[in-house]
Nucleic acid binder design. Sequence first.
DNA 1: GTAATATAGCTTTTT
DNA 2: GCTATATTAC
Length: 659
Amino acid sequence: MPFLKSLNKLQLKAAIHTQGPLLVLAGAGSGKTRVLTSRIANLVVNEGVPPSEILAVTFTNKAAAAIKERLDRLIGSRAEELWTGTFHTIGLNILREENALAGHKKGLTIYDEEEQALLIRLVMSELGISEKKAPYKAVQFEINMARNENQTPSEYARKSNSILSGEVHAVFRAYEKKLEEAGAVDFGSLICAPIQLFSNNPAALERYSGRFRHILVDEYQDTNSSQYRLTRMLASKHRNLCVVGDPDQSIYGWRGADVKNILGFQEDYPDATFIKLEENYRSMKKILSAANSVISNNEQRLDKTLWTRNPDGKAPLYEQCMNEEREAAFIVSWIKKCLVEAPGLKLKDFVILYRTNTQSRPIEEMFFEESIAYAVVGGFKFYDRREIKDALAYLKALVNPDDSLNFLRIVNVPPRGIGRATLNKVHSLSKNKGLSLYEAFKEAASNTNFGNSGLRDFIGTFENLRREATERRPADIAERVFDLTGYMDFWSSKKTEDAMTRAKNLDGLVESIKKYETRYPKAGIADYLSLVALMSDADDYKENTDQVTLMTIHAAKGLEFPVVFMVGMEEGLFPHERSIDDEEGVEEERRLCYVGMTRAKRLLFMSSVKARSTGKEVCRRVTSRFIGEIDPAFLSIRTPKPPAPAKQSIEAIRKLLFT
DNA sequence: GTAATATAGCTTTTT
DNA sequence: GCTATATTAC
């Protein structure tokens, strides 16, 4: 088979292994994705396994799409039948399928972090728990951690030793009830609900564990306890579970990921085959050695040393810059130099990696000034904008009006005379009669005691839209909604620049729905909404356009670039001050550093600044310990000389003179 | 009762 | 720098 020819011995072994559990420890750049795809292709082509009986879980939906695409080249259109996606996508699909089977008509609205926070705060105020006693952020964190451990509210109460456990327990319970009433789920319940379903319903478990003859889980080091349980359940029948990962690249501990899942795999499955991929095909020797010397400072590690046949290449270069602007100038001058000296390189071969999203700004400004095309991945997303959130809330409310949270969000936007007093009245009506907010509004609209015409008009419009929605296409629906509710007009009638961009963004949203519509002709507006909710930052990385990419190191997981810049290599930023207190936190930061460094194929630049402006103050900064941990044999340190960007604007010179 | 305006507060990483 | 909340104006 042609797809097996290009593999090395160990990769091949992993690819053609067919029966029983398999653990693949795949170091950075060791050809993991190739192994995964060849393995699936081998199962289908040589072993005759129908693609529909294979489940491949990836970390992002983009990675899932990439696997499907590669597979499409190997086995053709049958790749479409494969079950792929993130744990969350898989969970959602299971819930949908089972809901349909059980005849539930309830909507499945996915609440993102912000919606979750709103609901928690609502619950807290109803329970009379003050923000001072229990900050909602802390409550939210506890609830999400409980979800990561697949705990119900009462299990949480039993096991938690948090000082807030009493309050959290109460909020958690009421929160679950509200979710249920709204037909909504949070991210965590997309994993927990299927587990619960399978525990209560052996026939359902039988269906799925029987269907998935082979299961592959990528990035297994970043699975949490719930995902672990779900995986075990799904694999319980056939036990053909292949997990792939690298403990050194575990960077989601703060989200409940537990490296023990991968480290303990052989205890869970004593008959598991174990394969270690240590040959790196990605990076030049000196880059790899530098990365290895950093990660070797971690105490808690599995024995593993990455090596490569690649040439030495150039040692990573570190420079301490005066401030953020100089750091940005440092990047720009090197990009320009590289483009001249290495004619094969294009803008899309460069990536700027940072610890926190806010770090992108000064770099963006410099790129703009120097007319360098760039794209920021993640960070402040299109879908995070207020007008887009409002617009999506309209669509969510339309699809699932019992989702009181989103209904509430839009009911008086734009202002239509439904203020606090009206809201209170409707709210008590809903409570007294046990109605959802929307049902209460409907009742209020037909009741003449509510002399509010704005309310009646809105409910009328909303009802009409709901009727229309059954026979229109998604983009059409969206356009009608924004039009008839006056939401589009709310922005486009204002003449401020801000309002105009918001109106334009709304048009952009309709455009994106149109694109979705042509791509998935059978899908409805509800499908679009869940896709948007589960879309990850990395999903909007476009490798085909020629522009420099800016992203967090977290988002860069699984990607590779010829030239990598890692900026802000400073104590307090990287490692971040909030993880500096305990050794485990620092070790995770170190793994993150390792992940960043191992993204680089040919050149790696690292930089820090001497003075950083945080808010109003300017702080002196100390070089990150990680720089000191790099074996000096594999690091060039440059003392900053006056930077000389090819084209200096008057403004840039002025800045140089006065800073 | 509702809408516009000032003020504080906040920014780790994300499905 | 930008948004949710509190206050004041209509």
